[in-house]
Simulated assay, not measured.
Amino acid sequence: MDMVFIKNEEQQKWLDRLKPILARFAERAFELDESRGFPFENVQDLKDIGYTRLTLPKKYGGSGMGLYDFLLFQEKIAEACGPTALSIGWHVGIVLQLLEDRGWKKEVLDETFFEIGKGALINRAASEPVTGSPTRGGKPATSAKKKNDKWVISGRKTFTTMAPVLDLFLVSAWLTDENRLGWFLIHRNTPGVRIEKTWDMISMQGTGSEDLVLEHVIVDEKYLVEQPTGIEKKGEGWLLHIPACYLGIASAARNYAVAFANSYSPNSIKGPIGELPNVQRLLGEIELELLQARHFLFSVAEKWENLVEHREELMPQLAAVKNAVTNTSISVVDKAMRIVGAKSLQRTNPLQRYYRAVRAGLHNPPMDDATFTLLARYALVSSNEN
């Protein structure tokens, strides 16, 4: 199936470059889950081959690759280790996001990109205990107050993925004197910045999504990098790395189930269970679901890159992809477990890890109810226009 989606030699070269390190990721995945640790070695391996600079423009030391390329590789990384894929996906995707016009001063954007070119890792920090998901529009409790020509920022952010190794944080805060939202670029070594270890989930434990605590952190005026007006409707194509990750986990479950069906032969039947009609039915359903999900994901990604002037019209499709692919991934893992049976629940069996991992996708943005509402509104508007 890979050959259907690989479009050029550069993509194939990257997949060949990833192959040996992904084998190591897969070997480390069980211990990572059991230890509830963080994949430091995996992140370093990705740094060493230049993956953290994948979407960074070449003039800053990157490879200058696009959304489609990024998703292709993210799926393969997730096959080996879902938490590693989701973690690095935020960093690589945010680089793509920053290439859009977001109102940054050129001086600060250049500085940030040059740091990333030298190996710095970045992620946004938006979620908070009192607001829940930032996509719901809650006002952040993290505050920023102007003092002379500096900003003083205090607050706590939750779900700060890849926190153990991040160098740069994009932090949302409420500008108290101006009664509006702002985003600040904050360096890890700034006084008052600390990481508090709080991440304790049964799913995607290895993402290191700890709390970021800011205690009277002082930053220069220029690091107030974004000031949303509330009317932006650009869409976020880079967020397709989320469904790509869960699709990769589902692909890993499929691979395990196929290998098991080909090799497991209880003495109650002749030959492996893969010859049984009920098992073949489940495998056929898995293949169909994965094909549909991949074609949907990559066709929308391709349109997003090529039809720039129609991106607002594509926004519902971005949300639909996340919903469809994530829920398909859950279905695929469930079917794989049905094929393998009770063995799939053994702690040493990777299927139970995949089962827990894909459930996390339901809680990544956008949530299913928001997607259905968005699709319904676009349908109603389109109907009125016609």
Results as ranks from 00 to 15, higher is better:
residue 8 N to W: 13
residue 10 E to P: 01
residue 10 E to I: 15
residue 14 W to N: 07
residue 18 L to A: 10
residue 19 K to V: 05
residue 27 E to I: 13
residue 30 F to Q: 15
residue 31 E to Y: 06
residue 32 L to F: 03
residue 33 D to M: 00
residue 33 D to W: 10
residue 36 R to S: 14
residue 39 P to C: 04
residue 40 F to N: 07
residue 41 E to K: 10
residue 41 E to A: 14
residue 43 V to K: 06
residue 44 Q to V: 12
residue 48 D to S: 11
residue 50 G to A: 07
residue 51 Y to W: 08
residue 57 P to M: 06
residue 58 K to W: 05
residue 62 G to Y: 02
residue 63 S to Y: 15
residue 67 L to S: 01
residue 68 Y to F: 11
residue 69 D to I: 02
residue 69 D to M: 05
residue 71 L to M: 07
residue 72 L to N: 02
residue 74 Q to T: 10
residue 74 Q to Y: 00
residue 76 K to A: 11
residue 79 E to T: 05
residue 86 L to R: 05
residue 88 I to E: 04
residue 92 V to I: 08
residue 97 Q to H: 13
residue 98 L to C: 00
residue 104 W to F: 14
residue 106 K to H: 10
residue 111 E to F: 09
residue 111 E to R: 05
residue 113 F to S: 02
residue 113 F to W: 05
residue 116 I to A: 07
residue 119 G to M: 03
residue 121 L to F: 03
residue 123 N to W: 00
residue 125 A to G: 07
residue 131 T to S: 06
residue 138 G to F: 09
residue 145 K to G: 00
residue 149 D to P: 06
residue 149 D to E: 13
residue 152 V to R: 05
residue 154 S to W: 07
residue 154 S to T: 15
residue 155 G to C: 00
residue 155 G to F: 02
residue 156 R to T: 15
residue 165 V to Q: 05
residue 175 L to D: 09
residue 177 D to F: 01
residue 183 W to S: 00
residue 183 W to C: 04
residue 184 F to G: 01
residue 187 H to V: 00
residue 188 R to L: 03
residue 194 R to G: 00
residue 196 E to I: 04
residue 197 K to D: 11
residue 199 W to A: 02
residue 201 M to N: 12
residue 201 M to C: 00
residue 202 I to E: 11
residue 205 Q to M: 10
residue 209 S to I: 00
residue 213 V to E: 07
residue 215 E to C: 09
residue 215 E to T: 14
residue 216 H to W: 06
residue 216 H to Y: 09
residue 220 D to R: 09
residue 225 V to K: 01
residue 229 T to V: 00
residue 241 H to S: 08
residue 243 P to M: 08
residue 245 C to H: 01
residue 249 I to L: 11
residue 252 A to D: 06
residue 253 A to P: 02
residue 267 N to E: 14
residue 267 N to S: 13
residue 267 N to H: 11
residue 268 S to K: 09
residue 276 L to D: 08
residue 281 R to D: 14
residue 284 G to E: 09
residue 286 I to H: 05
residue 287 E to T: 09
residue 288 L to R: 12
residue 295 H to C: 04
residue 303 K to I: 00
residue 306 N to E: 12
residue 321 V to P: 01
residue 322 K to N: 14
residue 328 T to Y: 13
residue 330 I to R: 12
residue 338 R to H: 10
residue 339 I to N: 04
residue 343 K to W: 12
residue 351 L to S: 08
residue 353 R to G: 07
residue 360 A to D: 10
residue 362 L to S: 07
residue 362 L to H: 05
residue 363 H to Q: 09
residue 364 N to L: 11
residue 365 P to C: 14
residue 372 F to G: 07
residue 377 R to S: 12
residue 378 Y to M: 13
residue 378 Y to G: 09
residue 381 V to Y: 15
residue 386 N to K: 11
